[in-house]
Design a protein around this nucleic acid. Structure first.
Lengths: 166, 166
DNA sequence: CGTTATTACTTGCTCAGTCAAGTAAAAACT
DNA sequence: AGTTTTTACTTGACTGAGCAAGTAATAACG
């Protein structure tokens, strides 16, 4: 029995599992960002915003729903949209049906950038995450990720990634 | 055949695997930090520094080796050590055998904090990562993490987590 | 229909992290 | 021994994110 029910110290396999994951958490995000940043001056997060907008019928979304897709706090999103707006890839318009809501719209040049960034991002994810794994391991990773997500949701009150809404 | 050899677009299982992992990468780090921050005003990163120092015979390490353990850039580490020094948990002394090297030493109160933080951190990791998984899955996670780490090392030139040394 | 509450953002302040440019000590050449 | 290179850090300028405190528009209530 490898006692993992809230021990005071991690040992043995549990420790090496945790160490392996911790290193991954440290290395993977910058590695995934790098090609996007170098090629398009776009972080993974900003890319996600453009991606979400492109996936929408009229290429426009209110901040709150967009924050949901990007799983971001509103303040983080607001600033990121400002940056994207500054680069001309996105535009803010007022929602005619609700004066509070700021519709964020993907521009033509935003769409162009996204379409060039898409294959780069897909290939980075493939090279760094998918290809190194067997098909079985990809399934395992999916299941493992979902279980940990659920644990976070259950444990940390609610929505650890949206600190604005505490 | 779920073509994952550098496709231009992620689809199907690959897409859901990636989405699950991406969400994890976003949620897990803050969730792991929260109890440490609330309880001890200590991030996971700072905790790692204290932990590494405590694991050393004389509770002292030079910055470069410490950066290795914490897998951090030197500048990030230098600032973190300054913070810890400000809280009195660590002390900088000059290495008598090498005037360039700044030995960072764990203080008494640093050790006390660490010893109180240790079980909290172990239990957080257990609750959020280990317990939600079966024993088999823990093994899978270890292997998967190592494979991705290797891919990052092989692919991104070298040491993506130490941008100072480019 | 006027007041209060809620929703949908935005922004000021602060802090952590990156990059690049220091500084200072030791090592390596010549 | 004197100059150059390398090593071991530190720091300044800048950027991005978090929290808390705004603002403005709508909804809900009495």
């Amino acid at each position: 029995m490898s006692d993992s029910s809230a021990p005071n110290r991690l040992t043995g396999d549990d420790l090496t599992t945790w160490a392996a994951l911790a290193t991954l958490l440290e290395w993977l995000p910058p590695a995934l960002d790098a090609p996007l940043v170098r090629g398009f001056n776009l972080t993974h997060f900003e890319y996600g915003i453009l991606f979400a907008l492109a996936d929408t019928p009229d290429h426009a979304l209110g901040m709150t729903v967009l924050a949901g897709y990007a799983n971001s706090s509103l303040s983080r999103l607001s600033r990121a949209v400002s940056r994207l707006e500054g680069r001309g890839w996105v535009q803010r318009t007022r929602n005619p049906f609700d004066g509070r809501s700021a519709l964020t719209t993907l521009t033509e040049s935003g769409l162009e950038v996204l379409e060039k960034a898409n294959p780069v991002q897909a290939q980075t994810v493939s090279k760094l995450v998918l290809e190194p794994l067997t098909t079985a391991q990809r399934g395992q990773l999916r299941e493992i990720s979902l279980r940990i997500q659920r644990a976070i949701r259950d444990h940390s009150g609610w929505q650890p990634s949206r600190p604005d809404t505490y």
